[in-house]
């Protein structure tokens, strides 16, 4: 045992240069991907025109563009909203995944594994069935998503056995229950209008992205993301287990509830505008943990940025790969499911 501490802590103990570099690189990739995405598509837009149209969004700026009126309409009403929405949803799903993994002390959780996405889908399907408007659809998505997560939390806290597996299994059961509910709403839906609406919506796609969607979800998304960002250091302590966290001075019930509510809010908002896009919330936090470490002070921002860029790039692939668009949920599943299998075989589960 050493005597009185002789010197101040070396400065590099608390800085993580690698994490800082990773965040900068991820940000550059995300911005570059967004810029390139603006130009890509069936109707290519010249870089100069795209830049001019972007700058024109700033009040009192009016630059002459060489783009046709048709190209401008496409740019403002289709391409730009879609890119913004892909960034937002990727950011939200990844942040929610990271937050759920922390509060459930479980590396194998994500919004879709916990049943939050399926819960949101059921809530939204019921709202569509009843012919409600878009605000009610989002509200119902949130209510059912939170019900699903709380059910998983309740069941896994009562079940015996390996905690990691219990959470995953109860999540699977709740998801299946919610999916059955969705199937039932489809069964009784009107095949002429509500059935196709529900079916297409569930597929997980950014095709129909428009400015109205963004306006509707931006507030709940911002609220949830800010809450998660501000509380991110405390999530670390929750991962130590409830009793230990409490003796460290953390009101675990309050912190867990706020984190779960915020993560569910951003999940439900995402599902409400794009349908179910699975696996992003599992894959991205894991990749970030490999790059910047487990500390949520670095992990959460890194996940948000990587998630945004990741979903945007996957969405680009989904709209450009073939002439008929591939729903993005299919692509993320192709990436995510093998990754999950890799995770469960790679390390010992405790």
């Amino acid at each position: 045992m050493a005597d009185e501490p002789r010197e101040k802590a070396p400065a590099d103990v608390f800085t993580n240069r690698r994490a800082r570099t990773v965040v900068i690189v991820l940000t550059v990739i995300m911005v570059a991907a967004a810029c390139v995405s603006l130009l890509l598509g069936r109707y290519p837009i010249a870089p100069g025109d795209a830049l001019a149209m972007l700058l024109n969004l700033i009040p009192f700026v009016d630059i002459e563009t060489g783009a046709t009126a048709q190209a401008e309409a496409l740019f403002y009403n289709v391409r730009l909203p879609r890119i913004i929405l892909a960034l937002l949803v990727g950011c939200c799903l990844s942040a929610a995944g990271a937050a759920f993994q922390g509060t459930f002390q479980n590396p194998l959780t994500s919004p879709d594994i916990l049943g939050a996405s399926q819960g949101a889908a059921l809530g939204a399907a019921i709202a569509i069935l009843l012919g409600w408007g878009s605000v009610a659809i989002s509200g119902m998505a949130f209510v059912f998503a939170i019900i699903a997560v709380l059910l998983v939390l309740l069941i896994s806290s009562r079940a015996r056995g390996n905690k990691v597996l219990v959470v995953v299994l109860s999540g699977v059961m709740i998801s299946s229950l919610m999916s059955a509910g969705v199937s039932f709403t489809k069964l009784i839906a009107d095949p002429a209008n509500t059935l196709p609406a529900i079916t297409y919506w569930l597929m997980g796609s950014l095709t129909s992205a428009n400015l109205k969607d963004i306006a509707m979800v931006i507030a709940p998304m911002a609220l949830g993301l800010v809450a998660l960002y501000l509380m991110r250091w405390r999530i670390n302590i929750l991962t130590m287990g409830d009793e230990e966290a409490e003796t460290l001075g953390v009101n675990t019930k309050v912190v867990r509830l706020v984190v779960i509510l915020a993560a569910t809010l951003v999940t439900a908002a995402s599902v409400a505008v794009t349908g179910m896009i699975g696996w992003v919330g599992l894959v991205v936090p894991h990749l970030c943990r490999m790059l910047v470490g487990a500390d949520y002070r670095r992990l959460l921002p890194a996940s948000m940025i990587m998630g945004a860029g990741f979903l945007l790039i996957v969405d680009d692939v989904s709209r450009l790969l073939t002439t008929a668009e591939i729903p993005i949920g299919i692509l993320t599943a192709f990436i995510g499911a093998p990754f999950f299998l890799y995770l469960i075989t790679r390390r010992k589960l405790r």
Partner: peptide, 15 residues
């Protein structure tokens, strides 16, 4: 469950 650095575990004392 997650791979925290030793110093970050000690830092949890600030809660």
């Amino acid at each position: 469950v997650f791979d925290y650095d030793v110093i970050d575990v000690v830092l949890m004392s600030a809660a």
